Amino acid sequence: MKSIVYRRHGEPSEVLTYEEIAAPAQPGANEVIVRVTKRMVHPIDGLAVRGIVPSPIPPTGAIPGGDGVGVVEQVGAAVGIAKGTRVMFFPVQGTWAERVTVPANLLIPLPDDVSDATACQIIINGITAIVLTRAALAADNHSGVTSPLLVTAAGSSVGRNVIALAQMRGHKVVALVRSDASATILSQSLAGIPVISTEHEGWPAAVAAACGPAPSVVIDPVGGDMTPKFLEVLADGGTLLTYGGLDARPSTISTIALTVRQHTLKGLNAYSWLATTTPEQRAAYIADLFEITRRSPHNFAEFREFPMTAAVEALSAAQATPRRGATILTSEV
């Protein structure tokens, strides 16, 4: 079968290859083999290939990807799912391949009204959005002050899903993006939500005007030089939830200001949901994800698809600014 492989860290254009590798062996008990049709291209995929995010490389080479959508082709013993079932799955390493072995407990059957392209946008990104939104609403309630959530990188898939979830729960949001061009694009699909660009120095004043009370929660994947600036606009006693580092540079934070203003800085990720939730809670999460696709279809309508032979171009597109929806790597011709 065909797969994307890298055997050393570096620039994707220099280290990624598209090659024939051995197909998965017969599935064991409680396993299935899935023919992968689509998978999202995430910023962390590029960081892993470059070695910025620690990721060991096996002797046979590493295959990018941690989630996907596809069709069950082979079923092992004690698996209660039929061949031909459309599924999404997470977390499963090495999904930038035509087929992958998946533990049965990580499979999520797809409703008929959710397409493969939509489904692959709500796996990691949707679960991340739910983890962030629940933490944000809990922190906001704890603060005792009702204020809009400040969502940075709001044009990203996670940002859009956070906004949709907050709206489902009747919570106000202020959206923050990194350029005027991104603000123009996002404003077209977020009626009634203030969208502010950080391209100009006066953006904190614009945030204050849009929020009213200073936001008690900021949700951010950018980091770097922006972290201390987000802490400055945060209300005293507020919480900054971070879920990534689009700016890989270290953040300079004053612990004096953190102490005096009693801020909380907390990191979250989608991978923790398996370890920190019950099966019943995970089922509720998934129901919420599918409901987002029905209530906010515009969040998933704009995306770009690339064949696996164009994986380098897909990674570049996923990092481009302004962003126009998701980047999807497809096995389909």
Rank of each mutant, 00 (worst) to 15 (best):
A191T: 04
V233C: 12
R295K: 14
L190V: 00
E11F: 04
P43R: 01
T327Y: 07
V173H: 05
V69P: 08
T184L: 11
T255N: 08
A208H: 12
A214T: 08
S156V: 00
M226N: 04
P279G: 06
Q188D: 08
E11W: 07
M1Y: 05
P59S: 13
A62E: 15
R261P: 09
A209H: 14
V312K: 10
V49N: 04
L258A: 13
L274M: 12
T184I: 11
S3T: 14
D225N: 02
Q319W: 12
L176P: 03
V41P: 01
A129R: 01
H200N: 14
P64W: 00
L110P: 04
S251N: 08
R8V: 13
A48F: 01
G192D: 13
E73R: 12
H298W: 05
V217P: 05
V92W: 05
V79L: 05
G70P: 13
L234Y: 07
L241G: 11
A135K: 12
V15C: 14
V151P: 15
T37H: 08
V218Y: 10
A210V: 01
G84I: 10
S179Y: 03
S296W: 14
V312A: 12
A210P: 06
T277C: 06
T252Y: 10
A257M: 09
E14C: 07
F306S: 04
A205P: 00
A77S: 14
R39A: 12
A283S: 13
G144W: 07
A257H: 15
V53F: 07
E19T: 08
V177P: 00
P27Y: 04
P54V: 10
K38C: 02
N105A: 15
V34D: 00
A209Y: 10
L265E: 11
V218A: 15
G61D: 00
T227R: 15
R324I: 00
I52D: 06
P91A: 03
I292M: 15
L149H: 07
